[in-house]
């Protein structure tokens, strides 16, 4: 079970969180025209990375905040966590 540092609450066990996918995907702005290809990329197409990956988790059974977690998908090592409003650097 992973041990994730919630930027709001501190170190918590994985079972308090739910996984939310790739954190680098940006939702296209509402009302803006977008090609089929770009839309498909947003909705469906994800890289299945082996290695370091910025991902979203929600601290569901805690502060309910969505957070960004920089994790190695192969080793599970977590390098960094950010609040929702902090930019991935």
């Amino acid at each position: 079970m992973l041990h994730i540092k919630c930027p709001h609450c501190g170190m918590r066990s994985q079972n308090e969180f739910s996984y939310g996918g790739d954190a680098t995907v940006k939702r296209p702005e509402l009302g803006k025209e977008i090609s089929d290809q770009d839309w498909d990329n947003f909705v469906y197409n994800r890289k299945s990375l082996r290695g370091k990956h910025w991902e979203l988790w929600q601290h569901l059974s805690g502060c309910r905040q969505w957070i960004k977690v920089y994790r190695d998908t192969a080793t599970h090592e977590i390098f960094k966590t950010l609040k929702a409003n902090e930019e991935i650097s």
């Binding site: 939702r27 979203l56 929600q58 569901l60 309910r64 969505w66 929702a84 409003n85």
Partner: peptide, 13 residues
């Protein structure tokens, strides 16, 4: 609830 929180926290802060 999670869905609304997702948009409020990440997409439309």
């Amino acid at each position: 609830l999670s869905h609304l929180e997702y948009y409020l926290q990440l997409v439309w802060p």
